[in-house]
Design a protein around this nucleic acid. Structure first.
Lengths: 260, 260
DNA sequence: CGAGGGTTTGAAGTGCATCAAATAGTGTGG
DNA sequence: CCACACTATTTGATGCACTTCAAACCCTCG
């Protein structure tokens, strides 16, 4: 198969993936195809660095399958994990407005398939289809709210509670009393994401297990009584409901406001 | 003076203030007048609560003169300060997309003048003037980047360094070797914003003073050698330049991208 | 002057980090 | 399929940073 044909197939596949993106829900098919033509569908193994903080921002990214870590690193080498993303999530898009540079670094946590798309094209379509700007706005606001939540957690929760909250957010929406789940990635990485050291994570998880009757076998955790965990954890959260987050509304759900 | 005349004057004053807002730079005067008509220009004293987390979001706000604290509160009463805003800053606008509820609470820190505007009107103009959406996007992305920065700081800096960083961000853009500045609000509030207790703040500031040769007289702090403070503080920051933030670009600075 | 909030100081406790080492788990090549 | 190498995770011992509780101090404002 020659290069051109290969590119064509890759582009078709990308178009198909991009069509499923809720961010692009408002775009006509032609625009999505345009994005797909200019995009690259890539797969790399764990450790691949997609960009680093301070790089000139040319691309934004979509995770197709796998896990990507966003982080910031100091001169000393200590790093702060901003977020860990998986299938369907977008990143690097902040550079579309404001700064011309990435303000964090991105690295694959696992073997991961992803698409990279030119930011310039996003800028173009933001102008052309105003609804896209509104949908992007909604996505970014949602991310920001999760971040506010993180800041709160770092301030008011101790290590076992932060882990408890993390587990709760892994639970399927409508969960029964008892849930069994897999940790999505390294315990070390979870620790960083929660702002603690691996040793602390290990000990804190042991304490949580003891206090809320978890069963732990490696990366598989069973919560026999969700309610116990919620009380232990979310009592210290500001949200009455719980820490479980929801997707932001997309174009279809938007309410148009009347003036005057 | 009767109510109608008073409202008229207030509306004129609000229009004038809104015209200066960089967010509204792209709007025609008529739209700004429309906003002004539907807005309320208010002044309240310290402690006034503008809204609390979970309230249905009807209004967004602009600080005219003073200080406003955004925070999240747990059932136990411990609070996490998300941000402290002053003149010209906007808040409560996140509710314009996504959730219908505020996801933090807002309270005046000082006697403060502010404007409140209907979110429904913002929604209307976001649709009508796409550039407004892009400018709002830029503002929110900028806020988000500052928040990522905060998360990093909570993770990698100790208390004296976080204070040092806070002081650096108070310095005027082009500062000489030596700077003298006023703390903008309560030390207790600064402490909360930096994620520490008042006692810790007091002790950490004393340590910072000792380590970087500050002079402190109440709320007036003199930094004799900026460079010393930068090295002490930002060595642990990921940004090569410093922690000083810049305003996001507005409409005028935007670059239009060519397709294809 | 006296009340009250903001700030500092002291003493003691707690949680998390650090350093070091043991153990479990995973993928590799033989 | 096993042994080895390498990484992830756990465990232990110790130290430091920050918190907590308590009390003093300071400053402002009625």
């Amino acid at each position: 198969m020659n290069e051109v044909a290969k590119d064509h197939i890759e582009s078709n596949r990308a178009a198909q993936l991009l069509t499923d993106l809720s961010l692009f829900a408002c775009l006509p098919q032609a625009a999505i195809v345009h994005f797909a033509e200019k995009s690259r569908l890539l797969t790399h193994t764990k450790g691949k660095v997609l960009y680093i903080q301070g790089d000139e921002a040319e691309w934004f990214y979509v995770v197709v399958k796998g896990w990507v870590k966003l982080f910031r690193e100091t001169l000393e080498g200590s790093e702060a994990v901003i977020d860990v993303l998986n299938d369907g999530q977008i990143f690097g898009e902040q550079a579309v407005v404001g700064g011309r540079y990435y303000n964090d670094s991105a690295e694959l946590v696992d073997a991961t398939q992803y698409i990279k798309l030119p930011i310039s094209l996003l800028q173009y379509y933001l102008q052309k289809y105003p609804q896209l700007a509104l949908d992007l706005l909604a996505k970014i606001v949602h991310k920001q709210q999760l971040q506010s939540h993180e800041i709160e957690h770092l301030n008011v929760q101790n290590a076992p509670q932060r882990i408890g909250c993390f587990l709760l957010r892994l639970c399927p929406e409508a969960s029964e009393d008892s849930v069994s789940l897999n940790l999505p990635y390294d315990k070390t990485l979870i620790a960083s994401k929660l702002g603690m050291k691996p040793e602390t994570f290990s000990r804190a998880l042991a304490k949580l297990k003891n206090d809320t009757k978890l069963e732990i076998r490696g990366a598989v955790i069973t919560i026999p009584k969700l309610q116990i965990l919620k009380e232990y954890t979310c009592h210290y959260c500001s949200q009455a409901i719980s820490c479980i987050d929801e997707e932001p509304a997309t174009s279809k759900d938007q309410v148009k406001a009347a003036p005057k």
